[in-house]
Every structure is written in structure tokens, then in C-alpha cells.
């Protein structure tokens, strides 16, 4: 193995870059499967990030910090739900509003915490196996949230395709009128899906401010919420592919960081563009085949539901 030791730290950093995207992506996937397009991920992640950071600094309790971030994200999503589900506002415009509001409110909450350090959430050591050569730290020595992200992804996949509740949720997303006419409460189901998405985005934000870069800075998500949205299209609404996409984007982010550190003779700004350019390229490749998108996208996505009375 000599000569390849550098690859382990690279893989470890890819995991930390990918995990917030897994959370946000999986959450938004459930939201979109129920037929709602929430463009406010960036705002919910920011509010989650600041809530987690403030809670962790004040109480020193990471568990509480992550729960608080999930709660704050879910609350933001609840606001989105009131507007789009109860008051039938345009989902695109409301999602944008949620992001703009989230940027403002998170900056306000976090203003006294800018530049303060916080201890990153410690990594675990499952069954004492993290000392195993090569795979030890990668498989058994991550922070708890990395494992949670995989549990959530598998859980969501199981929920959507193996349970009755998941079937109902998908039915609501594909034909809200039919689901309504056989007696399901479209609005309630969508509220739950939207709030789950918010909670996941909140945890994704918490990961950024407690682990990826343990600090708070205004706008620290720098577009990750939007990249998560692109991930769903990339994944053609499949949970397993959301993970693949998240790790791909994590890889690109880390690649450019390592390239900068290695002193490549390319301006750092060009390298920093890579994740954004890659997002565009991937979107183009996937969207090119219009029929494939139409086949997988929930049919009612973005449409307003008003029960005919």
C-alpha cells in the first residue's frame, strides 16, 4: 500500500463534503415525491447551520444542537407549507422567498457568533475497529452524522418503495386529485413531507457549521442548497442515486481544494468554479433526454392543489 496513503485523507474529506448534500438531497427528494417543489433549501440549511452552531456554543450539547437544527429547518419548511399548501402561493416564488428570508434571519441570529470557534463533533470508533488498516477509519471511524445520512437514505428508500405510507405519498405526488378522491388528505401529507425535507436540510446545515467547517459565517452554504436541488434531477428522483451524486459533487469540491493545496499552476478562482460548472454540466447531460425526466419526475410537482368544493 505504500505510496497510496494520501488517498485515505482524501476519501475522508470527500465524505465530509458529501454528507450535507446527502441530507439536503434526501429531504428534498421526499418533498418533491409528494409533489411539492421547495426551492428554499439554501435558506433552510443556513437557518439549520446557525441554529446548530448557536445551540452547540451555548449548551455544548451536540445532540441538542442537531435536533434544534432539524427543528429550525422543519419550522422554515412549515412556513413554506402555510404559504404554498394552505394559501396556495406559487411554489417557485415562495421557495425563493424562503431562501432570501433564511439568508437574512440566519445572519441576524448569528451576528454575535461570527468567527467564534466550536469544537467539531468528535468521530466515533465503532467496535474499536477504526484502527484497522486502510478501511478502518473510513468505515468505522466517522462522525455519527455520516452514519445517520446513510441510515436516512436507506430508510427513505425503504419508506417510499416498501411501505403503504410511502406509496400514498408517491400517489399524492403523482396525482393529487385521485389521492384526494379516494380519501387521503393531500395537504396534510404534503405538510409532513415538506417538513421532513426542512428537517433534513437543517441537519445538512448543522453538518456544515459543526463538522465541515466548525464555525459560523454568513452565507456559509455557498450554493449547496441549490446543488442539492440539481442532485435530485441528476438522480432522477431515486434515493440511491442521490447518494452517488452527492459523493460525486463532494469529490469535485475536495478535488479542487486538494489541487489548490498542491499548488497547481491554476488560479484558485478557476478551481473554485468547478463544483458550479460541474452542476451545470450534469444538469445538461441529464435534462437532455426530456422523456426520461418526464418519466421519473412526480407528475404533480409544483402544481397547486385546491380541492374542488
Amino acid at each position: 500500500m505504500t505510496g497510496y496513503e494520501w488517498i485515505i485523507p482524501v476519501i475522508l474529506t470527500v465524505i465530509t463534503a458529501a454528507t450535507p448534500l446527502v441530507f439536503a438531497g434526501i429531504g428534498e427528494l421526499v418533498t418533491e415525491k409528494s409533489g411539492v417543489l421547495n426551492l428554499g433549501i439554501e435558506g433552510m440549511m443556513l437557518v439549520g447551520a446557525v441554529t446548530a452552531f448557536v445551540t452547540a456554543t451555548v449548551t455544548g450539547n451536540y445532540f441538542l444542537a442537531v435536533i434544534a437544527a432539524a427543528g429550525a429547518g422543519a419550522f422554515m419548511a412549515f412556513l413554506f407549507g402555510i404559504l404554498t399548501l394552505s394559501l396556495m402561493a406559487n411554489q417557485v416564488a415562495t421557495g425563493l422567498a424562503l431562501t432570501l428570508f433564511g439568508v437574512g434571519i440566519s445572519a441576524l441570529i448569528g451576528q454575535d457568533f461570527v468567527g467564534q470557534p466550536v469544537q467539531a463533533i468528535p468521530k466515533v470508533d465503532i467496535a474499536g475497529l477504526s484502527d484497522l488498516p486502510v478501511v478502518g477509519q473510513i468505515l468505522f471511524g466517522q462522525d455519527p452524522l455520516v452514519y445517520l445520512s446513510f441510515i436516512m437514505a436507506i430508510g427513505v428508500s425503504w419508506f417510499l418503495y416498501k411501505t403503504k405510507a410511502g406509496l400514498i405519498l408517491r400517489a399524492v405526488g403523482d396525482s393529487h386529485d385521485s389521492a384526494h378522491s379516494i380519501g387521503y388528505s393531500v395537504v396534510t401529507i404534503r405538510y409532513l413531507a415538506v417538513m421532513f425535507g426542512g428537517a433534513m436540510s437543517g441537519i445538512g446545515g448543522a453538518y456544515l457549521s459543526l463538522i465541515y467547517t466548525p464555525m459560523w459565517a454568513e452565507n456559509m452554504t455557498s450554493g449547496r442548497g441549490w446543488i442539492a436541488l440539481a442532485l435530485i434531477v441528476f438522480a432522477t428522483w431515486k434515493p440511491s442515486l442521490v447518494i452517488v451524486g452527492a459523493y460525486m459533487f463532494g469529490g469535485i469540491t475536495i478535488l479542487q481544494l486538494h489541487a489548490q493545496a498542491a499548488g497547481f499552476d491554476v488560479p484558485s478562482q478557476i478551481l473554485s468554479m468547478l463544483p458550479y460548472v460541474a452542476t451545470i454540466v450534469v444538469l445538461v447531460i441529464i435534462s437532455k433526454d426530456e422523456s426520461r425526466i418526464r418519466k421519473h419526475a412526480p407528475a404533480c410537482i409544483g402544481k397547486i392543489f385546491h380541492p374542488a368544493s
Partner: peptide, 13 residues
């Protein structure tokens, strides 16, 4: 930013 976000929120509502 908070004021700006609020205006749009309330308008949409």
C-alpha cells in the same frame, strides 16, 4: 435582509 424576506413572504401569503 430580514425585512426584505418578510415583505415577499407576506406578499405571497
Amino acid at each position: 435582509g430580514v425585512f426584505q424576506g418578510m415583505v415577499l413572504f407576506y406578499l405571497l401569503a
